[in-house]
Nucleic acid binder design. Structure first.
Length: 332
DNA sequence: ATACACGCCTGCTGGC
DNA sequence: TGCCAGCAGGCGTGTA
């Protein structure tokens, strides 16, 4: 369930069940799902055993659960607030769903019959009792890892956690540090984004998909956002005026928020929330997967074109590559 | 720093 | 029926 709305659906479903819970057991059924776990952190299972989960946080498509270890693993010298900007501040269980990952919340007696269950985490929650979190991932592009938390450069909360805050709030897993804030993050720097966007010579779609520039957007929501503002994905980002770039950003925000309100996009049972239920945004798609159908705006037949080893979907009439901005046509 | 090709995995679909 | 190419919502690395 890869893009921001789908990951947020998982985060919000997970949060009330796991916050405050203690890890009572970890089963790694396929170690390939630990490919992003740094062995220098120690054994994945024993790092988690006995830990208490403090929250569920998301930035872009990354999800993490800050944890308090069973026993202190660092000297209690100084308060958390006194930590230097680059000092480790605890750890987190990091999850990325890749292309086909699911995080399913279950009762402990749920049959473990998923063909692609890779990791099972057993929890004891003070109010909800025993729970099980199953990480299911057909293609194994996703992963789980225990990672150290490092301070955010801007000091702001590292990601979205629905207002739940703690000492971990200004800290991001080291493997997520290079990921830009997402467009729904209150600390998202619009001016910095517009400046960086305007310096890109590559097409606007490639720029939207660059998680180091702006996170959370994948192929579906890139196509939807570009359709909304009538931009062709191959239009060089540097040729788009700041005003148009701002409109694009606003379209991205609206598309993500609408998808989130509808529970995300599901095409099949592969993409579900923590209870295994599908979202409804697929019914609201205007561009993605609409090739051969009329453009909802102008009626022209929508097309699909190869793009970065996958596909772009757009209206050939509404969305055309325009001439680069020159001094002449900017002035005129 | 940015830009781009490629690899990582499994399973389904459509064409032959 | 069988086989195989092509396709799928993502990210990291290596190379210029």
């Amino acid at each position: 369930m890869p893009e921001l709305p789908e990951v947020e659906v998982v985060r919000s479903g997970l949060a009330p069940a796991v916050t405050g819970a203690i890890v009572t057991g970890v089963e790694v059924l396929d170690r390939r799902s630990l490919k992003r776990h740094d062995p220098a952190m120690g054994d994945f299972e024993s790092r988690l055993a006995g830990a208490r989960i403090a929250a569920a946080v998301r930035r872009g498509k990354f999800l993490w659960l800050p944890i308090e270890a069973a026993a202190p693993t660092r000297p209690a010298t100084g308060a958390v607030g006194a930590l230097g900007a680059h000092e480790p501040a605890g750890t987190a269980l990091v999850a990325h769903l890749g292309m086909s990952g699911q995080v399913l919340l279950r009762t402990p007696d749920h049959p473990g019959d998923d063909a692609h269950a890779r990791i099972r985490i057993h929890l004891e929650h003070p109010e909800h009792g025993e729970l099980r979190v199953d990480f299911v991932d057909q293609r194994i592009f996703g992963s789980m890892a225990v990672d150290r938390l490092i301070a955010t450069p801007d000091g702001a909360a590292a990601g979205y956690s629905a207002g739940v805050t703690g000492d971990w709030a200004g800290f991001v897993p080291s493997q997520v540090a290079h990921i830009a804030r997402d467009p729904l993050d209150p600390a998202f720097d619009v001016r910095a984004f517009l400046a960086a966007f305007g310096r890109r010579s590559s097409g606007v779609k490639r720029a939207l998909l660059d998680q180091g520039l702006v996170s959370g957007i994948g192929n579906i929501y890139a196509d939807e956002s570009l359709w909304a503002v009538r931009l062709h994905g191959e239009q060089p980002a540097s040729s788009v005026s700041p005003r148009r770039a701002r409109e694009l950003l606003e379209a991205v925000r609206q598309v993500l928020q609408k998808a989130l309100a509808e529970g995300g996009t599901s095409f099949d049972a592969q993409y579900v929330n923590v209870n295994g239920a599908s979202g409804y945004f697929a019914h609201s798609l205007n561009a993605y997967g609409q090739e051969g159908r009329p453009c909802p705006r102008c009626g022209t037949t929508m097309v699909r074109a190869p793009f970065m080893n996958r596909s772009s979907h757009f209206c050939p009439r509404c969305q055309r590559v325009s001439a680069p901005r020159t001094r002449a046509n900017v002035a005129g």
